[in-house]
Design a protein around this nucleic acid. Structure first.
Lengths: 211, 211
DNA sequence: AAAAAAATACATTTTATCAGGTATTGACCT
DNA sequence: AGGTCAATACCTGATAAAATGTATTTTTTT
């Protein structure tokens, strides 16, 4: 049968769109049915047209790629969505996948890499281009290590703080003095040079230091 | 050449260890060199012995799989580490990958799935067994939807809050009255029934509602 | 054009946090 | 045996946040 995968490209740089379109034109079973420069236009389109595969830039005007992906997957879980960007960082890639993305490709990937990722994604895999793999699997060294860890007690207290507990409530929970908890809390804030608990919680969660 | 992949299994259930060992014994190029019931023993072992592949349970006594993986990858980034568990949830899998894991397999996966995942992981891919893919790519419906979103302004303010800014600082940043920011802040807290900003930030980050 | 939602602004009271300094005890490491 | 770190506890003053209530204007949606 001649059922091509109906593919849509979304990127706010027309040059990139044509580049990708050129790359994909060689593939017999991929048919580019539309190209968009914004996510809103795409959302309208997929309501009325069958789409199998979407290649989208992550940095889009108005609505970003992560939210766009989330929105699409809610209504159309079967559409395969691959994210793209020129540069990237680990947390962004992970966020994209967590919101339903089927893979992530850096735009500097080779034609072969693009091709391979696309076919594997269609096949149900979750794919990353080489450089993305490097990014996500080497969070080590420079990225975010060298930060002193929380002590047991400090982690307990930080966890309760993230649950919205007040100093007094934490003291009651852990059978400690209000003043002890206050000291721990201050020590944690000082250790990471955070201005307040809100910033601290954001920091700890982003660095996987809670849980 | 006859270079087998030196493989280690870590699981606190001996029965599971022998089960996996049985599965893998059929594979010619995989050699199981050791089996451990705790992460500490594994850490000792890899200091003195060459290891290519580690299959580890995520739920381990003393040190959990995520931390264990992180620790190993810091010193030995080339070791391929696959996480396993009987049941799982999206956030745990993502955390494992973010900490250097090369893939995640649910223990109910078929022999073929295990085999395929292992070979692909050795080959440099990041792999998930079928059910894991389902879990991570369908966060929709029941999991975390039905929560009202932040308005633009609210998101701006929440973001600044997560950066440790005070109400006054936010007001200055956004050229708003102190009182306006105070109102927004209160509205956000009420909308999600959060006790304070710390809990709010934790909630927003966990649900990817910031950024 | 009407209704709903979002953004704006004000005022007050109570409660909690932040930042400063200090000190004792036990555990662990060498 | 001495040093370091973690955990515990206390005190106080300045500042900020939380809880309430109200109200106007703009924007968006229907």
């Amino acid at each position: 049968m001649n059922m091509k995968y109906k593919t849509v490209i979304v990127d706010d740089h027309p040059i990139v769109i044509s580049g990708i379109a050129g790359l994909l034109s060689d593939l017999n079973d991929i048919e580019i049915v539309e190209k968009f420069e914004s996510g809103i236009a795409l959302l309208d389109y997929i309501e009325d047209n069958k789409v199998d595969l979407i290649l989208m830039d992550i940095f889009l005007p108005v609505i970003n790629g992560v939210d766009l992906c989330k929105t699409i997957k809610q209504k159309h879980p079967k559409i395969v969505i691959l994210g793209m960007s020129s540069q990237s960082e680990r947390s962004l890639v992970m966020q994209f996948i967590q919101n339903g993305g089927n893979g992530y490709i850096l735009k500097n990937a080779s034609f072969d890499e693009f091709k391979e990722c696309i076919y594997k994604a269609i096949d149900g895999e979750i794919v990353f281009s080489e450089e993305v793999k490097t990014i996500i699997s080497q969070p080590l060294s420079e990225d975010l290590e060298r930060i002193p860890g929380l002590s047991r007690r400090e982690r307990d207290i930080a966890l309760l703080l993230s649950q919205g507990k007040s100093t007094q409530e934490i003291a009651d929970d852990l059978f400690l003095s209000f003043l002890t908890v206050q000291t721990h809390r201050r020590n944690i804030l000082q250790k990471y040079k955070m201005k307040n608990v809100a910033e601290l919680i954001a920091f700890l969660l982003k660095n996987n230091m809670l849980n």
